[in-house]
């Protein structure tokens, strides 16, 4: 199993929960697991939710379209907090030359409830741990 985030000692974790730390802490970013090409349920769900709400602009497997950026590339630079900020609030770049609008997904259950899963899936793609296409599940 590939572990992206370091394992946090239980005490620290408990403390974190009590104080609700800033999600920007890198060690708390969502993680994914890819083992022999098989992904965990969260990562698979991320793939699925991506297909539901993101694919039609950002292209198959996060690889970009003619008008929306490749998220495989974007996640090399965006951390989880920045990713969440864009997805929840949306982003508009409407000028005389550009007409790009990413909607706010803060109120979209299929996205907002699974933000971590979507991030994990895209991070796996971005880290080069997942190939194009549908990831394999343990029960396939």
């Amino acid at each position: 199993m590939i572990r992206i985030a370091p394992v946090i000692p239980a005490m620290v974790l408990a403390g974190s929960l009590l104080t609700m730390p800033d999600c920007a802490q890198a060690q708390n970013d969502p993680v994914y697991s890819v083992q022999n090409g098989i992904v965990d349920q969260h990562t698979f769900n991320g793939y699925r939710r991506y297909g539901e709400s993101c694919h039609r602009c950002h292209g198959p497997d996060g690889s970009g379209s003619s008008y929306a950026p490749s998220l495989v590339d974007s996640l090399k630079n965006l951390n989880y907090e920045q990713f969440a900020q864009v997805v929840i609030n949306g982003r508009q770049n409407v000028t005389t030359s550009s007409n790009n609008v990413m909607p706010s997904f803060g109120l979209t259950p299929d996205v907002a409830l699974y933000l971590d899963d979507i991030y994990g899936y895209l991070k796996a793609r971005s880290d080069g741990k997942l190939e194009r296409g549908r990831p394999k599940r343990a029960d396939d």
Binding site: M1, R3, A5, V7, I8, L13, S16, L17, M20, P21, C23, N28, D29, P30, V31, S33, D40, H42, Y80, A84, A112, L113, L115, D116
Partner: peptide
């Protein structure tokens, strides 16, 4: 595996 500890609250 550790998931995002901030997740439940924001969810």
């Amino acid at each position: 595996m550790i998931r995002n500890v901030c997740g439940p609250k924001s969810r």
